[in-house]
Write a protein that binds this DNA or RNA. Structure first.
Length: 806
RNA sequence: GCCGCGGUGGUGGAAUGGUAGACACGAGGGACUUAAAAUCCCUUGAAGGAAACUUCGUGCGGGUUCGACUCCCGCCCGCGGCACCA
């Protein structure tokens, strides 16, 4: 008699077995083809694993388990991205050292991940806060520094007042701090910058050779924001100065009626006429005090003041006024814009507000030539030039090319490529991050910490609070800060800023290849064997920043010949978020977070894993529904009970055999396309088919268990053992289907009359088209529909349907 | 505003242009049981009909096609990203 299915005993038993047997520990093996499956390593927060994490992990676990069964040598690692603000904030509140808190959190996360039965190679775990790890994060930074890609710059940074931290542009959401939602202001501060813009083209180019989901590519392209245009030089009348304006639409330049410089523009004071000085100064002062979010609000009314100066549009020798207006941003393009109000919405609004001429130079496809002052302004995607001298009659795109060449030829401007991408603000005035390994010497300037002195370890401090002065808590540690210059041995000071969170996660996948190497970030041999990551799954929230940053670092490492491939990830997919019941995000404050521990306790890890895969399309958001677990649990219960029906000496059953092979095909294909929900559904169907049998041939059941094992590994191992197998199921061969078994003896053919279903008939699979159409026409259900009608046409789709057109 | 994704039963969701609603939840009925739980079986898009069956039905309006959830055109709604980016 079969014992009942008891996930608690089974799951613990097999988790212990895998650990003792080192089932998932891998080594490089030149004889085997490799597969590197990667999931984003979690931030080990104090609240533990969240039910959203297992969506990504289970999916990749299934893929990796399948690859092992397909004979691949599989690297599937896990680690912890453990530097970060929540831990630091917790330390501030409780006074406990972040390292201690981190250690506890990692232990808890590890426990939870192991309860889920993932096939991670735990011997390769990395922790970004481990000095043996961040030694190499610092080392990579120094490589960037030595090649001029890390530089210090005094620039206005985004300062979160509440977190007391400088933020990267990427960390501002809707003008507020991404983390705390608080106000952000501009502050001048010396910041370490990484020259990611030097890699803009390369990062764009690299996207062509990788297999990323479309929206990940599109978002990255958008973020890089490459734009071809021309910097046009406008001579300021009665002055030696020039105003340079970037535009992507030089075709409309005959319609230029003004130039606007932003309040930050360096020429503002020089070009302002004395009688306008007071007004301009006041305007500029006010603009600088206005928060960027207010200034750039889309529906904000256009304001600005005339400088009193004019410049000359060389194209038509027209004299046009120069204005100062805050809708022009200092950090975009050249910080100055040529105003073409006829064909740019913002220029139009400005011209209307200031009563400046509006000239139409483009006729859209409707041929409308109404003066633009009389209609709402347009911004055409296509059209023909008018009022534009030698451009007249040209399509706007042709005109753009022609005039760019012309302007450059005449020396009035220069073709340029602009990017939306900015250099990466790389310093943080916080404690819980990697110290930036540089020393400042009055005589020698910034000097790297010598390699043999890495890592620069985080010292123990008494207080973790950041300061209002904008200095890291490390700045107060005078023993640590004061040091000697590695070059001249004179007195020198350490850099007290730390690196941002993104640093450790920008190369962690390389460290997994060789996690304990003390001499290099990872050995060339291990990187050559495992690189690149074959399949990387993660959240959409990381497709811009983390993905771009890590690609940048990786391309840099490739350029200095430390890694074997230009691109780090061959394939990138993304899972949808798991929302709480009701469609809200799960959050501690709302109290709607589902803890995997509770679910595992009640239903078991196999049920949880299978349910998460079954709940809906993998790439779309899904609402958590505890009721849904019931169905999956019943499915596993049912399979468990099927064991009693398994028999060694049962003849073939064509129907069951066909169902089995269809399931093999479907599950195999669905895993590859991440259609896990339909794979599970197909296995459920098969379980019903088997249930109807008196006895199940053992060879069928074994194949079924093999298919199930990536989804529900514990119960599968146990049933595999129950069937008399001695070895783990993990390295058994993935079942193959046979085309011949997919065919059924009889097929159901749909019969339509004029495209509407009127009957179905069941025929032998090998029936001829003639026989089937004849049977269709004479079917009792069909005959009345054809009465008094002439059959015009019969469409036959083999094995599917007959459509009689009458 | 632009870009991406989506809209299908009471619910989550299935459907290479070919029988819409697989699979699952829930609900209703039945079997087993002293009873309940568990399990198993049946029914379950809507309307009409005793039934056979008929009509309608995949956000809305058109179109292509023998045939459209699927392709094309024009909209509406929801989610995500970007956004006075010149």
């Amino acid at each position: 008699m079969q014992t009942p299915y008891n996930p608690k005993d089974i799951e613990k038993k097999w988790q212990d077995y895998w650990k003792e047997q080192e089932t998932f520990v891998v080594k490089e093996d030149a004889q085997k083809k490799k597969f590197y499956g990667l999931v984003e390593f979690p931030y080990p927060s104090g609240s533990g694993l969240h039910v959203g994490h297992p969506r990504s992990y289970t999916a990749m676990d299934i893929i990796c388990r399948k690859r092992r069964m397909q004979g691949y040598n599989v690297l599937f690692p896990m680690g912890f991205d453990a530097f970060g603000l929540p831990t630091e904030n917790y330390a501030i509140k409780t006074g406990r050292p972040p390292a201690e808190v981190t250690k506890e959190n990692i232990e808890n996360f590890t426990r939870q991940l192991q309860l889920l039965g993932y096939s991670f190679d735990w011997s390769r775990t990395v922790d970004t806060t481990d000095p043996q790890y961040y030694k190499w994060t610092q080392w990579i930074f120094l490589q960037l520094f030595e090649r001029g890609l890390a530089y210090k710059k005094n620039k206005p940074i985004n300062w979160c007042i509440r977190c007391k931290i400088g933020l990267a542009n990427e960390e501002i959401v809707g003008g507020n701090c991404e983390r705390c939602g608080g106000e952000v202001e501009k502050r001048d501060k010396e910041q370490w910058m990484l020259a990611i813009t030097k890699y803009a083209d390369s990062l764009l180019e690299g996207l062509k050779e990788v297999d990323y989901i479309k929206r990940a590519k599109v978002q990255q392209e958008h973020w890089i924001g490459r734009k071809e245009g021309v910097n046009i030089t406008y001579k300021v009348e009665g002055s030696e100065e020039n105003v340079v304006c970037f535009t992507t639409r030089p075709d409309t330049n005959f319609g230029a009626t003004f130039v606007v410089v932003g309040p930050e523009h360096p020429l503002v004071s020089t070009i302002t006429k004395s009688d306008k000085k007071k007004e301009v100064d006041e305007y500029v002062k006010k603009a600088k005090l206005t928060k960027e979010i207010e200034r750039t609000a889309e529906d904000k009314e256009k304001t600005g003041v005339f400088t009193g100066s004019y410049c000359i549009n060389s194209l038509n020798n027209k004299k046009i006024p120069i204005w100062v207006a805050d809708y022009v941003l200092g950090n975009v393009g050249t910080g100055a814009v040529v105003g073409v109000p006829g064909h740019d919405k913002r220029d139009f609004a400005f011209a209307k507000a200031k009563d400046i001429d509006i000239i139409r130079v483009v006729v859209d496809k409707n041929g409308d030539t109404t003066p633009i002052t009389k209609i709402e302004q347009v911004q055409e995607e296509s059209g023909t030039m008018i009022n534009s001298g030698f451009l007249n009659g040209l399509d706007i795109h042709e005109a753009t090319q022609k005039i760019m060449d012309y302007i450059e030829e005449k020396g009035w401007g220069k073709k340029v490529i602009n990017y939306k991408l900015r250099d990466w603000v790389f310093s943080r005035q916080r404690y819980w991050g990697e110290p930036i390994p540089l020393i400042h010497c009055v005589d020698c300037g910034w000097v790297p910490v010598p390699e043999d002195q890495l890592p620069v370890k985080l010292p123990h401090v008494e207080k973790y609070e950041p300061t209002d002065t904008g200095e890291s808590p490390l700045a107060a540690m005078s023993d640590w800060v004061n040091t000697t210059c590695p070059t001249c041995a004179g007195p020198a000071k350490r850099e007290t800023d730390t690196m941002p969170n993104w640093a450790g996660s920008s190369w962690y996948f390389l460290r997994y290849c060789d996690p304990n190497n003390n001499n290099e970030l990872a050995s060339r041999e291990s990187l050559t064997y495992w690189s690149p990551v074959d399949w990387y799954n993660g959240g959409m929230e990381h497709t811009v920043l983390h993905l771009l940053y890590s690609r940048f670092w990786h391309q840099f490492l490739f350029d200095i010949d430390l890694v074997p491939t230009k691109e780090p990830y061959k394939k990138r997919t993304s899972h949808g978020m798991i929302l709480a019941k009701g469609g809200e995000k799960m959050s501690k404050s709302k109290g709607n977070v589902v803890n995997p521990d509770d679910i595992i306790h009640e239903f078991g890890a196999d049920t949880l894993r299978t349910y998460i895969m079954f709940m809906g399309p993998f790439d779309q958001v899904a609402e958590w529904d505890t009721n849904g677990l019931v169905g999956v649990k019943r499915f596993l219960d049912r399979i468990w009970l099927l064991q009693t029906k398994v028999s060694d000496s049962t003849p073939e059953n064509p129907e069951a055999q066909s169902a089995l092979h269809k399931t093999i095909k479907k599950v195999s294909e669905d895993i590859e396309s991440m259609s896990f929900n339909t794979a599970v559904a197909k296995m459920m169907e098969l379980s019903h088919t088997f249930q109807k049998l008196d006895t199940i041939p053992k060879r069928y059941f074994e194949k079924f268990i093999l298919l199930l094992s990536p989804f529900a590994p514990h119960i599968s191992e146990q049933m595999w053992q129950n069937l008399g197998n001695i070895n783990t199921i993990v390295y058994e061969s993935w079942p193959a289907y046979k085309e011949e078994y997919l065919q059924e003896e009889e097929v159901t053919i749909a019969i339509q009359v004029n495209g509407k279903l009127r009957a179905t008939i069941t025929v032998n699979a090998d029936s001829s088209e003639e026989d089937i159409t004849a049977a269709a026409k004479t079917d009792a259900h069909i005959v009345p529909w054809l009465a008094e009608k002439v059959i015009k046409k019969v469409i036959y789709v083999p094995g599917k349907l007959v459509n009689i057109v009458a």
